[in-house]
């Protein structure tokens, strides 16, 4: 699509600068700065209530930041036209509800809505089929969405996001309801999108998965950015112990892969 922009690595795909959010008088986020380049996976991690989802909703523009600014491809989020933004960026939220019994294929095809009336719409069927296959839900395509299990719904919603074929993808806990294999599949998809030049932001709970798949990790702690950088730099036992309030072991993978992070169990 916009290969010229992809090559331009000086402008981050998505950037939140000095973002603060207050709810009532409670600071949910204070002074958070993160960014992600095209071709990168950024993982947002942190304990429950640390502000991961809030940060994601600020990045999507669903929640206005009290302070700070959010930019998509160097342009302030507020300046983006609705339709243009939908063709540049796709979002997977945690709510996987569909009000009426649409079939799985219908739901995935809705991801093509932003391209309606454009030349890209010729690729609708191909995009939908590819997305159904990538998320392993092709066999469910004629099922009604509300009849699916939690994990199946999550994968279908991810398929919808993939079908949107955007350069920027934001995923809020895409692995939460998934079994071991599908967790790996989903993160493999995120990785593969990044290799194709997309910028991927993903909220995760599993630190080992974050360490394995992300190019950079932002650790949030009670609304403040505790660390932001390369996985090997930020995934230290001391930092994680401080943030999560539990003793943690960062183990080297015996086969030389990414580190495995587990709590110390006695």
């Amino acid at each position: 699509m916009s290969s010229a922009r992809r090559m331009d690595t000086s402008v981050p795909a998505l950037r939140a600068a000095d973002v603060s959010v207050e709810l009532g008088h409670k600071a949910i986020l204070s002074g958070v700065t993160v960014e992600v380049q095209h071709g990168e996976v950024l993982a947002l991690v942190g304990p429950n209530g640390a502000g991961k989802s809030t940060l994601l909703s600020v990045l999507t523009g669903d929640r206005a930041a009290g302070q700070g600014r959010v930019q998509v491809d160097g342009e302030d989020l507020a300046h983006w036209h609705h339709g243009d933004l939908a063709r540049r960026r796709a979002v997977l939220t945690q709510e996987n509800q569909v009000s009426f019994p649409f079939t799985v294929r219908d739901v995935v095809a809705m991801g093509r809505a932003p391209w309606q009336g454009r030349p890209e719409a010729d690729g609708d069927d191909v995009a939908v089929e590819a997305a159904l296959a990538a998320t392993d839900v092709a066999h469910l395509s004629e099922r009604s969405f509300p009849s699916l299990s939690g994990g199946e719904k999550a994968r279908v919603s991810l398929a919808r996001v993939l079908a949107q074929q955007t350069d920027i993808v934001l995923l809020d806990e895409p692995t939460a309801a998934l079994d071991l294999r599908h967790q790996e599949d989903v993160m493999g998809i995120a990785r593969e999108r990044a290799s194709a030049g997309c910028a991927v932001v993903v909220v995760l709970h599993d630190l080992s998965i974050a360490a394995a798949y992300a190019d950079s990790i932002a650790i949030l702690d009670r609304g403040v950015l505790a660390a932001f950088g390369d996985p090997s730099d930020v995934m230290t036992a001391e930092l994680l112990e401080r943030v999560y309030g539990i003793a943690v072991r960062v183990l080297d993978d015996p086969d030389g892969g990414s580190p495995v992070i587990v709590p110390v169990r006695r």
Partner: peptide, 20 residues
């Protein structure tokens, strides 16, 4: 009608798909 279809995905998601 087409926008009502998208709205059934929830308001946030409909917004992310370009619905005002």
């Amino acid at each position: 009608a087409k926008q009502y279809d998208l709205l059934s995905l929830g308001e946030r998601t409909a917004g992310h798909l370009g619905v005002r």
